[in-house]
């Protein structure tokens, strides 16, 4: 029974072409100017282009140094698009909106 309940939901989603839900992670370093700018810019960007269809996680790498190796982090700030695939990495303070759109493959939306 439960299976049947699930199936129509998924089918319905794809049929309606409901926009995919973006999973984003923003890595920053404390309260450095670049980090602060990146946080503000990312938030603005997401509200503007991905309203209600994104999860944004902001991680301070200073607090979790182990994650730097796991996520292959070199340059900061960095925004990782985990979903939808492919994974993309954007570095910088996200001030260049065009490039962010390109990086997130949202050029059509812009």
């Amino acid at each position: 029974m439960s299976f049947q309940n699930q199936d129509p939901q998924t089918n319905g989603q794809s049929d309606n072409e409901e926009p995919v839900h973006y999973q984003l992670k923003l890595f920053v370093t404390g309260a450095s100017p670049n980090s602060l700018r990146a946080i503000i810019n990312t938030k603005e960007f997401c509200e503007h282009y991905l309203k209600n269809q994104y999860d944004l996680e902001i991680i301070d790498v200073y607090q979790q140094p182990l994650i730097a190796q796991a996520e292959q982090i070199i340059a900061l700030p960095m925004l990782i698009k985990k979903f939808p695939l492919p994974v993309r990495r954007l570095i910088g303070d996200m001030s260049d909106t065009k490039k962010v759109l390109k990086g997130l493959e949202l050029e059509n939306a812009g």
């Binding site: 954007l90 303070d93 962010v100």
Partner: peptide, 20 residues
């Protein structure tokens, strides 16, 4: 895989190296 969208630094490398 990388798109550069503005100012950045290599703090990630510093943190990684520092931690190691």
């Amino acid at each position: 895989e990388i798109e550069e969208t503005g100012e950045y630094d290599l703090d990630g490398l510093f943190i990684r190296l520092g931690y190691a």
